[in-house]
Amino acid sequence: MFPFNCRSKAFRQLVGRSSWVFLSILFIGCGGGSGSSPQSSVAATGTPGAEGSVGERLFVEASFAQFFKAHLNAGGNVNDALPASDPIVAPAIQS
């Protein structure tokens, strides 16, 4: 597997979703008066922007490829690390 850095560390020029998420949490957390706890409120509504964070994990999910399917067909488990990565990943920096 190639090195991975979370987006906020890897590309600081990009939109800082984390601050947006923080403000959203703060807003939701301060929204009283409904009789429900802040925790249950967030559980019901979710956190705006969380789809970006979950999407980032799916963006680097290596198990969706046909190469991994071949690994499963050979008796592998979904949660196993591949014994050898797809060789096609190695030459990706060719000029």
């Binding site: 998420v21 969380a50 964070s53």
Partner: peptide, 11 residues
């Protein structure tokens, strides 16, 4: 954790 809590339309 809250930062990973998907809004309903994504669940």
């Amino acid at each position: 954790p809250d930062e990973l809590r998907l809004p309903p339309e994504f669940r």
